[in-house]
């Protein structure tokens, strides 16, 4: 993916750029909002990673201006402020996701991948599949090897989020946000317990793998 990074802190920018490049992406870095807007307005990028606090034009302003100009490139906003109001403001301005500093790089990478390959809204798949596991979103049913599996609504949602990102890491925070609408990090490992229950219901061999320090990924056992 071609990623534009708009970040004024040189150190953070270097670390993020290094990590994203290491994951096989092309990264271009600009240090302020005005330059970021000029660069992004051409629409030549697959993803924008924009810091909220920037000298001159801030991150919100950049994304608002881009959306007003009809540029729909997905944008991930980074911020040191993560209050509810800030998050809502960021999303209202047109950002697609919001990540609070400090963040684990794995979290950033997982969200970058989730955003970068988000399917267009009108092309929602109705059938999600990993190995012999099938989820029918219209019938709300899950089968493995043709065998029907009964899931609670919340377990269904959890599996759905993992399957939509099949093959890519989904972090604990992403699951908390998308499954429970919880925007803080509980100290107890609640997500892990839900995942183990889901794993038990889905049977062997496990299709949901734990990526230490990063999150979970749904994929075939041999992949």
């Amino acid at each position: 993916m071609r990623i534009l990074l708009v970040e004024d802190d040189a150190g953070t920018a270097a670390e993020v750029a290094r990590g994203l490049t290491g994951a096989g992406h092309l990264v271009n870095h600009v240090p302020d909002g005005r330059a970021g807007l000029m660069e992004a307005i051409g629409g030549g990028y697959d993803l924008l990673v924009v810091d909220r606090m920037l000298p001159g034009l801030d991150g919100l302003g950049v994304i608002r201006a881009l959306r007003a100009a009809g540029v729909a490139t997905p944008a991930l906003m980074l911020t040191a402020r993560a209050g509810l109001g800030d998050r809502v403001e960021g999303l209202d301005a047109g950002a697609d996701d919001y990540l609070a500093k400090p963040f684990a790089f794995a979290e950033l990478l997982a969200r970058v991948h989730a955003l970068g390959r988000r399917p267009p809204l009108n092309a929602e798949p109705s059938l999600l599949r990993v190995a012999d596991l099938e989820m029918d979103l219209l019938r709300r049913s899950v089968t493995r090897g043709g065998q029907r599996i009964d899931l609670q609504p919340r377990e269904f949602r959890l599996l759905e989020v993992l399957l939509r990102q099949a093959g890519r890491v989904v972090t604990r925070n992403m699951l908390l946000e998308q499954v429970w609408d919880i925007h803080f990090d509980p100290r107890t490992s609640v997500v892990e317990t839900h995942i183990s229950r889901l794993r038990a219901k889905l049977g062997e061999p496990s299709l949901i793998h734990t990526m230490r320090g990063a999150g979970y990924v749904a994929r075939a056992p041999d992949a």
Partner: peptide, 15 residues
Amino acid sequence: HDLRTPLTRLRQRLE
């Protein structure tokens, strides 16, 4: 901003 940014950097380096 001023403290979290270097802390985030530190964490990334440690990682």
